Computed example of a mutant assay.
Amino acid sequence: MKRSSKSTMERRMILLLLVVCYVTMTYSQQCRQVMTTVCDDEVSNSRMQKGDKGDTGRSGKAGSPEVKGEVGEKGMQGDSCALGSLGTDIISRLAKIEKLLSPPSTTTTTTTIVATTSASRVTSCATSSSNGDQVLTSGVEVYCEDGWTVFQRRIDGTVSFQRGWDDYANGFGQVDGEFWLGKSIKSCFENISYLNANCSGLDNIHEMTRGGGCRLKIELWDFDGNQRHANYSSFSVDSAEKSYRLLISGYSGNAGDGMSYHNNKPFSAWDRDNDLHRTVNCASHYGGNQGWWFGDCLASSSALNGVWMRESTGTAHGVVWEVWKGWHEPLKATNMKFRCD
């Protein structure tokens, strides 16, 4: 009878748990799972396990040899489990129920994938298969165009080229617009020294062309949409100690040779007078404070860093390629680029 009482208590515990589940409805999904799991287990147990064996019946009285003894009383049948026995290990079964009734986690784990892409580094634009903004192995940002390194571009006058020596040495402007070899002069000012591998401008034109084997291509457009070009088979820029002297030769093209006169001339700016004129600074007097490889002011054949304008005024003659348009008809756009193979 002890077994019967124990099983009855266990059944009552299970029924009580299930009633609580339905009343609270807090974990209705989990409660249904408990019912299914527990009942499935118990049905299986009921099929596989017999009830406890009853007590052995009392022996009948011994009779005479001719008469059979009385049949002893049948032992009591063990209790069957209508709902199912919890088994011998009630602790593990209750732990199973507790686990099933545990509320779902409300913590959401979010995995963030951070893009770590960066501009690819190439030794020069000639080794790059793509166009646009590129980073060289030296850390210099350049603009590549079909294997050529663009170092000067004029389009619409949105960027002023009326700048001093340091600006031309380091670079300025934006590569998606007008610029002088450099994504932004800001990147140079943020560095400890102007003259380092992270800056652009004349310093890096010198570094990239000093090994020789470089060519120059100049593309020109007027305000009527006409286009001309000038090519030079040899091009390099000397060091800062030699005032970024221009070394150029081997003209071909249809724009006229506007650069050979400037060969072997040092670079000048409004605050660094290196031209051949004895009394005036060509950069400020005739060039509108631009930087260029001036010789004698009036003998110069080109000045592509002049003030952007539709018509020349006074002594500032705009963006000039004298051998094509003369000194008084400015150009609308220019593109200067080199390639070292």
Rank of each mutant, 00 (worst) to 15 (best):
K6Y: 03
E10R: 10
I14T: 04
I14A: 08
L15C: 11
L16H: 05
T24Q: 06
M25W: 12
S28I: 10
Q33S: 09
S46G: 12
S46M: 15
Q49A: 11
G51M: 12
G51S: 14
K53E: 14
G60V: 10
P65L: 11
P65H: 08
G72K: 03
E73Y: 07
G75S: 01
D79F: 09
I91M: 03
L101R: 00
T107V: 06
T112N: 05
V114I: 08
S118H: 05
A119H: 00
S120Q: 01
T123K: 02
A126Q: 01
T127F: 14
N131L: 02
G132L: 03
V135L: 10
V135R: 12
S138E: 02
S138M: 08
E141D: 13
I155A: 14
N170Y: 08
F172M: 04
F172G: 04
Q174D: 14
V175K: 12
D176F: 06
G177V: 04
F179M: 10
W180C: 04
K183V: 07
F189C: 05
L195P: 04
N196I: 05
C199W: 00
S200C: 12
G201L: 07
H206Y: 15
G212M: 08
L216S: 08
L216Q: 09
F223I: 05
D224S: 15
Q227T: 14
Y232H: 03
S236T: 07
V237F: 03
S239V: 03
K242R: 09
R245W: 06
L246E: 01
L247G: 04
S249C: 13
S249V: 09
G250D: 09
S252E: 08
N254G: 11
D257M: 11
S260L: 15
N263Y: 10
N264P: 01
P266T: 09
P266Y: 07
F267S: 00
A269Q: 01
W270L: 02
D273R: 02
L276V: 01
H277L: 01
R278P: 02
V280E: 04
H285I: 02
G288R: 02
F294D: 00
L298T: 08
S302N: 10
L304Q: 04
N305I: 06
N305E: 06
G306K: 01
W308G: 03
E311K: 13
H317Q: 13
H317W: 10
W321A: 06
E322Y: 14
W324V: 05
K325I: 02
H328A: 10
K337R: 15
R339Q: 15
C340F: 11
